[in-house]
């Protein structure tokens, strides 16, 4: 009886593992099969001509550059917020501080908030300040989205810093700020992993940029112009009746996937390599 139950479950477990593995690999296969034929130099080096929805010529450079601009500035802003927050929670506030506990709960909740809500909120903020859909709006919304991701991810590593290290530094007469500078070195692998994670989350999200950054055929030259992005390039162009345009969507999907996979690989590589130099 005991054996039978174990046997049944073992079959179920192996079955579900195979199922999940094959579905996940099948997704990659489909994206590659659809995207590879349309991927060309023209695709990644030109902006669409004749309108992104109907024009048959051109590529998706507008979306690639837009996404890069959006994510670069968002990550920069998020770093300037997240790192100080984590340092404050872990190394400035006293241990077991109520504020720290409350802050962590808040960030957990913020982490769970759907991206569409950030998008909608970003949109109302923009209206409040009289902004049109623009690169700046997109940057604000994406920053809101990834700040909790970054904080949680750095915090996870910061908690592991031994209190001896803090005491060793402080007993040399270092101020709190100087102690934090030492700890930052120790946290660098954690921070780089957090950045890669946030880039992945931010660059792939469509709902935040839908209202805020908008979509355009051209590459933005200032913060107040709208910016295209890869997820929206996929979303909008996939629904076009023109086959060439749909192919642009598939190409964009493949590029986005490649970016994400590269980021994941890099994150794994980083956290493995850099942890060797940790104490």
């Amino acid at each position: 009886m005991k054996r039978l139950e174990e046997k049944i479950f073992k079959i179920l477990m192996i079955g579900s593992t195979m199922l999940i593995l094959s579905v996940l690999l099948y997704i990659l296969f489909v994206i590659m099969k659809k995207g590879l034929p349309s991927l060309s130099w023209e695709m990644i080096s030109q902006i669409p001509s004749g309108g992104f929805y109907l024009g048959k010529e051109g590529g998706i450079l507008n979306a690639i550059m837009g996404s890069l601009y959006l994510i670069f500035f968002s990550v920069l802003i998020s770093l300037m917020i997240s790192v100080p927050v984590v340092m404050y929670l872990n190394f400035t506030l006293r241990r077991k501080s109520r504020l720290a506990a409350f802050a962590r709960l808040t960030f957990d909740v913020l982490f769970g908030i759907p991206s569409i809500v950030y998008g909608a909120f970003g949109f109302t903020v923009m209206i409040f300040f009289g902004l049109q859909t623009s690169l700046l709006g997109g940057i604000i919304a994406i920053s809101l989205l990834i700040i909790p991701v970054m904080i949680r991810s750095i915090d996870e590593v910061a908690i592991l810093i031994p209190s001896e290290l803090i005491e060793a530094t402080k007993s040399l007469g270092a101020t709190n700020y100087e102690t934090i500078k030492v700890i930052t070195r120790q946290l660098l692998p954690g921070i780089s992993t957090a950045v890669l994670l946030s880039v992945g989350r931010g660059i792939g999200d469509a709902a935040t940029v839908l209202f805020t950054a908008g979509y355009t055929d051209s590459i933005p030259t200032s913060l107040t112009q709208p910016a295209a992005s890869l997820p929206l390039a996929i979303f909008f162009q996939l629904s076009s009746p023109v086959e060439e345009v749909q192919n642009r969507a598939y190409a964009a999907a493949l590029i986005l996937t490649i970016i994400i996979l590269t980021l994941s690989f890099a994150a794994r590589y980083f956290s493995r390599r850099l942890s060797k130099n940790k104490i």
């Binding site: 530094t169 040399l172 007469g173 270092a174 030492v182 120790q186 130099n277």
Partner: peptide, 18 residues
């Protein structure tokens, strides 16, 4: 900080800075 500067602490386990 100046109090701590007057005292060197040697902990149970050595803790080298990174």
């Amino acid at each position: 900080t100046h109090i701590r500067k007057k005292m060197g602490l040697l902990a149970q386990r050595p803790c080298s800075l990174p």
